[in-house]
Design a protein around this nucleic acid. Structure first.
Lengths: 207, 207
DNA sequence: CAGCGCATGTAATCTGTTACATGATTAG
DNA sequence: CTAATCATGTAACAGATTACATGCGCTG
């Protein structure tokens, strides 16, 4: 919106410890805030199986670099796998400073910001005058199929989360995602109706 | 998903004229595909008032650079305002090549790609163990208010589009956005219920 | 004439992806 | 033994934003 002239300064006080980290860093640190230590690779899988439903999944290389950055800031520490474990891997743990920073980030006086949606299908529909009506309908059907597939993935994730102690909030996020995807299918179906309506109107004119 | 190892090659044939342009460029070119010429500034306002509801609004400086790129490719031409008009402005028009490229982009054999959602509120809910329950509920309420405000904006845009000839597809996209925002409010309200459920469970344990 | 909105653009920077390199372990 | 998967990283690049600079025209 209003960035025609000015950036709308998310007024960060100069000593705001929340400043200077992109949302991805907070997401990664958030992943670490659950009990236990984990490697970049594990984090990526976690992100793929839950974060991505409401907040996209960063590339693995980015996760590695965010982890290094968090460690540089003292928000996390890492440990190479000992000789007991077979593999050369590096596991990260959140530090007390990291927790404090996260708490501050989650605290009041800090607006989460508006959601961003990039929906390529809708871009295509919006420019629908460029496509064959048939083509457009196919795209919408494919989208419905893709969304249904995602829905079963969410439900699987939900089943896995069911009953795990202290996972209340992640579960709520997954339930939200489930409802959202159900809505997405309904909205796509409604749009199919609208598209048919357009076709009819055009058809009538041709008579 | 699958980008742990490999990029999932959107197999672009080497001579695909669709290749080499980011989605934003197509969105801008799409904006130009509607009759008439327009300036970067106008494009930005257009994007803010409709594109952004389903496909985010690029920064004004990016619009300017995309326009220059499109012109360099021969997909658009520009014209400085004549002495008749008061202001020094540059208006862009799509060329025949631009239309051809857009048609190809919109054509078959070219997957629009999956929608991307970045929902900071859900990131916060997901990490809800870091916040006071009260704080979380406030955030959700603020989000509902913001969404309702957006909803009236969509409806205004829809009212403006109503009746304009040949705006059928943009209208459909706006109607989709309207339904989506209605869903967003419902889902946020449902989540409020889930959050209350968590609180109750915790409350019971404390008895 | 001061200030705001219109209008265009450049430079620096940051975020994030893709491609590539490397090696170890495990399943068939 | 070989292929797949695990695991970590680097380098180059692309996409996008922010900050900054500039100037005109209109309104009060």
């Amino acid at each position: 919106m209003g960035d025609l002239q000015r950036a709308e300064q998310q007024d960060e006080h100069p000593d705001d410890p929340t400043a200077g980290l992109p949302p991805t860093a907070w997401a990664v640190l958030g992943l670490l805030s659950f009990p236990g230590e984990r490697t970049g690779y594990e984090l990526k899988k976690w992100a793929d199986s839950s974060l991505r439903f409401f907040y996209w999944s960063p590339a693995i290389s980015q996760i590695y670099s965010e982890l290094r950055r968090l460690e540089a800031r003292g928000y996390a520490t890492s440990r190479r796998s000992g000789p007991d474990e077979p593999r050369t891997k590096r596991a990260y743990t959140i530090t007390a400073e990291g927790r404090a920073a996260l708490d501050h980030w989650a605290g009041p006086g800090h607006d989460p910001g508006a959601p961003v949606l990039k929906h390529p299908l809708l871009l295509r529909v919006w420019l629908g005058h460029l496509s064959e009506p048939e083509r457009l309908r196919t795209l919408v059907h494919e989208h419905i199929a893709r969304t249904r597939a995602e829905l079963t993935e969410v439900r699987e994730a939900l089943a896995r989360a069911e009953g795990v102690e202290a996972w209340g909030h992640p579960q709520i996020a997954l339930r939200w995602s489930e409802r959202r995807l159900v809505g997405e299918v309904e909205q796509a179906e409604a749009m199919l109706g609208d598209l048919a309506g357009l076709g009819e109107a055009a058809g009538r004119e041709e008579l």
